[in-house]
């Protein structure tokens, strides 16, 4: 990838991060930590990879994205807004009574949301259905999925994984946002899902491990995934929870707590400084 393109993605991701902070701060609740850790992957998918059109959010031939870790609605909404599915200003209505931006993604109210999620693991399972439909209809769309690492503790993940491999759903590309933290602490302390890559390999998936914040690695992994046939794809993306905001990085406490206005301002000032450095 050209440096110019990487720079552009970094700028877009920074704007998406600012949207996450504004939205959760305005709502007074929500999940910034895991939203910030998967932002770079979302940016790559929606601004480089996916075949989508904000003017035709229901086009049957489009690529799909399912945010299986539905509590990361803030990054999904901020990405969709940045991509033109709805006005960026609306992000600050998140979770409010008169808003269409439900606390967890809802396909019936939010343009561009392909599946209602929030109850963990159900999104991955629904994505299996979308991928199966693609195979039945001989369509070449892909189904992308965002998973949490803590989410892997749900049994349904493994039912869905077994089915995706059984039906050879190579049109499915999943990312585990491997930030190592869940609400109650480190995933290895709460309920250890490791070894994650080995588990999916044993379930018959094509597994790759990458740095979730390195666009060249994201690109390479997706290209590899597109070139292999017969297996569903799992990209284990090592990430930093709260990525991009110094006082949020690596803190489980920012899983489900919104920034206060002062914290939001401090975070946005940091991100603006980063944007300026990118311009320089």
């Amino acid at each position: 990838m050209e440096q110019k393109e990487i720079l552009s993605l970094k700028k877009t991701a920074t704007n998406i991060r600012k949207g996450i902070l504004r939205a959760t701060c305005s709502a007074g609740s929500g999940h910034p930590g895991g939203s910030l850790s998967i932002t770079d992957i979302m940016t790559y998918l929606y601004f480089k990879e996916m075949n989508i059109d904000p003017k035709e959010p229901k086009n049957p031939d489009r690529d799909r994205f399912v945010m299986s870790k539905g509590h990361c609605a803030p990054v999904l909404y901020s990405t969709l807004a940045e991509r033109g599915f709805f006005p960026v200003e609306d992000l600050e209505t998140l979770r409010k009574t008169d808003s269409y931006l439900e606390g967890h993604p809802h396909m019936r109210t939010v343009p561009g949301v392909d599946m209602s999620t929030g109850s963990l693991a159900q999104g991955m399972s629904a994505a299996v259905g979308m991928a199966l439909a693609g195979k039945i209809d001989n369509k070449d769309y892909r189904v992308f999925v965002g998973l949490g690492d803590g989410e892997l503790e749900e049994g349904l993940i493994w039912e869905a994984s077994m089915a995706a491999a059984h039906y050879k759903l190579d049109n499915m590309i999943c990312f585990v946002d491997y930030n190592g933290l869940q609400i109650d602490g480190k995933i290895t302390d709460v309920m250890n899902p490791e070894p994650i890559a080995d588990k999916f390999e044993a379930f018959g998936w094509y597994v790759q491990s990458i740095d979730a914040h390195d666009y060249e690695q994201i690109e390479k992994a997706i290209e590899n995934a597109k070139n292999q046939k017969g297996k569903p794809n799992m990209i284990v993306a090592h990430s930093i929870k709260g990525k991009g905001v110094s006082f949020m990085e690596g803190q489980a406490g920012w899983h489900g707590v919104a920034p206060k206005p002062e914290e939001r301002d401090r975070a946005i000032a940091e991100l603006d400084e980063y944007l300026a450095s990118l311009d320089a």
């Binding site: 049957p60 599946m115 159900q122 399972s125 299996v128 979308m130 439909a133 039945i136 349904l156 869905a160």
Partner: peptide, 15 residues
Amino acid sequence: ANLMCTAAGLATCGK
């Protein structure tokens, strides 16, 4: 459980 959610995913694709 997987049966029901997979059915839902298929339904989003017009089935």
